[in-house]
């Protein structure tokens, strides 16, 4: 009748071996379950075709001095402004302590870099920044619409003013418009999505 109590191996067989089998089987089940879960989680990450569009090439020779273009990159806008001498001078003349956000916010540079204009551009004439307001993600207006009180960009949603280096100067936005990774492939082509360092490591021509 020992068989009826439902306790496997109640016949006094060495318990350690018995337990080992149960623990090993249970462990194998747990490991398998964990491994099976991974593909089902990973499938939600960006697919290869999406990643392939992770960097874009822009011909900036068509952007005249004193004008700007907005390009799509990773599903959002990027501003490329070909700045005039005055705009550059204006951006360079701002003292750091006049800035609400003193960080450079440049993906090419480490965090903590001061937000001088020089730290926000690779070449002074071209300012390249991501075009979503750091407040809640609206797209600020720029040249031809409303450049705000600091000649840069003005976000109509909640009234944030950016200067000619796209740094926040007044309004609710907490941070400067971030500078994406980019580098100049030639004098007139800019590649957005790779830093100069990554690019040269990967064998790209960096101008």
């Amino acid at each position: 009748m020992t068989e009826e109590n439902g306790a496997p191996g109640a016949d006094g067989q060495e318990p350690s071996r018995r337990d080992f089998i149960y623990i090993a089987a249970g462990g194998a089940a747990a490991v398998g379950g964990g491994l099976v879960a991974w593909p089902f989680i990973d499938q939600m990450n960006p697919a290869a075709d999406t990643l392939a569009l992770g960097s874009i090439r822009v011909d900036v020779s068509v952007v005249a001095v004193g004008s700007e273009v907005t390009v799509m990159w990773r599903g959002g806008p990027v501003f490329i402004r070909h700045r005039t001498e005055e705009e550059i001078a204006e951006a360079q003349s701002v003292e750091l302590d006049a800035l609400p956000d003193e960080e450079a916010r440049n993906d090419n540079l480490p965090t903590g870099t001061p937000g001088t204009d020089a730290n926000r551009v690779l070449r002074p004439e071209f300012l390249i920044v991501k075009g979503n307001c750091t407040h809640l993600g609206c797209v600020p207006l720029g040249l031809g619409a409303n450049t705000g009180d600091y000649d840069g960009w003005y976000c109509p949603c909640h009234g944030s003013h950016y200067d000619t280096s796209a740094r926040i100067r007044r309004g609710p936005a907490p941070e400067n418009l971030p500078v994406p990774d980019y580098f100049f492939e030639t004098e007139t082509t800019v590649k957005i999505g790779l830093s100069p360092e990554e690019a040269s490591n990967s064998g790209w021509a960096v101008s």
């Binding site: 020992t2 068989e3 496997p8 191996g9 109640a10 016949d11 067989q13 018995r18 089998i21 149960y22 090993a24 089987a25 194998a28 089940a29 490991v31 398998g32 491994l35």
Partner: peptide, 20 residues
């Protein structure tokens, strides 16, 4: 993996049913 898992579960099965 499945082979090892199957062997372990088979051993467990033999244990459970050993005296039945």
């Amino acid at each position: 993996y499945l082979l090892i898992f199957a062997i372990l579960v088979y051993l467990a099965y033999r244990q459970v049913w050993a005296n039945v």
